[in-house]
Structure formats: C-alpha cells, structure tokens
Simulated assay, not measured.
Amino acid sequence: MAAELGLRPTKRLGQNFVHDPNTVRRIVRAAELTPDDVVVEVGPGLGSLTLALLPAVRAVHAVEIDPVLADRLPVTAADRAPELAARLSVTAADALRVRASDLPTPEPTAIVANLPYNVGVPVVLHLLAELPGIRRGLVMVQSEVAERLAAAPGSKAYGVPSAKLAWFAAARRAGPVPRAVFWPVPNVDSGLLAFDRRDPPPGDRIEVFTLIDAAFAQRRKALRSALSGWAGSPAAAEEALRAVGISPLERAEQLDVTAFARLAAARP
C-alpha cells in the first residue's frame, strides 16, 4: 500500500506504522473498550489499528495529519471491512490543533492510538483538555515517555508530564512493544500507557499548569528558590508554601497535583 501511494515514512511526522496483527489485537484488548465506546485514534497511518478497533466499538474518529493517508483510510476500511466501514470517520487535521467541534458525532469516549514519538505528551494533554467526554485511553509512545507519564511523586521519572496528566487521569504502564512490529523499525523502545479519567482537584488548570512549569524549571532547587519568580520573591514563595503546609525546602518532584493546586490557589 505504501508503494502504491508513493509513501515514504517521515521522521517529521513521526511515522512508524504498526504492521503486526497480534499487536493491534493486543492493544484493543488492553484498552478495555465496550461496544458503546467512541474512539478517537490519532495518526491511524495505513489503518492496521483502525481495522482492529472497528469491530470492538460504536465508532472510530481517526485524526490524520497526512492528507494522502487521510484520503486512503476510508478506502482501506471499505475494502478490508465493508460491513464496518460506516463506523469510521476521518478528520484530516493536526491532532495538536483539533477541536471538539472538528469531530463528528457521537462524542469520543476513549483515546486509542499509536502516537508519533515527537508529540505524544502534548497530544494526550490537548485531547484530554479538549474532549471532556473521554473517560479512558491506551496509547503507544516511546518507552521513556510512558515511564514519565505514569511516574509517581518522589520518583526520578516524575516531572511536568506526570503532574499534568495526573490533573486529568490516573495513568499506568500497560506493557512493552517490540521494535520489530513497526515499519520502519524505530531506534527506540515503545510502551503502552493506559489511563482513566478522574475528577481534577479544585482550582484553575491554567494557573496550576503554570505553577508546575515554574516548579520543574529548576527542579534541583528547593521550592522557595525555584518559585521565587512565580511568587514575586523567595519570601513570597515561602509564605505561599507555608500557608498550604508545604516545607519551603521541598523540591518539585515531592508534590502531587493536588498539592500543586492548593499552592496555586495560595499565590500572593
């Protein structure tokens, strides 16, 4: 199919296509989908995962940035799964810019995708913010990215991605993916990340995310120093920290998202 389309996978678009049928079936099983789920799939590529998803759910909304692949996917579905092709809709767009209004009804309830390595984290965070109906997800990302996203406070891998994802969802590693199932074969390991939506802590998400960015920008420093710019001075940062029961000598990696939310609300 790639030869027919004159397609050469590009690093710019993070194109590493899954070609192994056992892998896509495993992903669908691990996603724990129901027949009523509506899946948004980012970067469907040549359609291997799409074809595995169609029998399992009510609908698949595929978001594909490559116009050639976006045009071809409905043809592939009609050819390989004609009785299920009506369940598929394709939106030719950048997933980092797609809005809820760009997608057809019904509203998505899950994300299942082989995400491009270079945009995995921002795509997940953007879609969770933009599509409040999403209750669960299973995404394939670089192994180190999956580790960071699922990391708990206090661990070396915990950082900005972990804290921000925790605003939306509880995340966990869901297993490795061998390199050989991709074309072209990537030079990094991949892994599955599963997550379930939960209620966020009280507070304004934008303000909390600004605080998280500030805290981890100087993660080796104590929060009194690291947050001096955010609060206006080291003394003001210490006042805000003490007001919510956080030691000024703590570091960013010790705080969970609820603590960040409390601290954001105490900003002078």
Rank of each mutant, 00 (worst) to 15 (best):
F195R: 10
V145S: 02
L127R: 07
A52L: 08
P132S: 09
S48E: 13
R97A: 14
Q254I: 05
P82V: 10
D196H: 12
V188Y: 14
P55H: 05
E107W: 05
I65G: 08
V24D: 05
T109H: 06
L51T: 00
L5A: 12
L5C: 05
A169R: 03
E130F: 05
G6V: 12
R172W: 03
F168N: 01
R87C: 04
Y117G: 03
A81F: 03
A70L: 00
A151K: 03
D94E: 07
A151R: 08
P184W: 06
V38C: 08
S143H: 13
R173F: 10
L46C: 07
V208F: 13
P122Q: 11
A146F: 03
L84P: 11
D102A: 14
A231K: 10
G6R: 12
A95P: 09
D256N: 13
F182R: 05
A264V: 06
A194I: 02
E130H: 02
L128A: 08
N118I: 06
G159K: 13
R205V: 11
K164W: 03
A2T: 08
R136M: 01
V141R: 11
P161Y: 04
P21I: 07
V24S: 01
R72H: 15
L138R: 10
A92W: 06
R205W: 12
R72G: 01
A174S: 13
V123C: 12
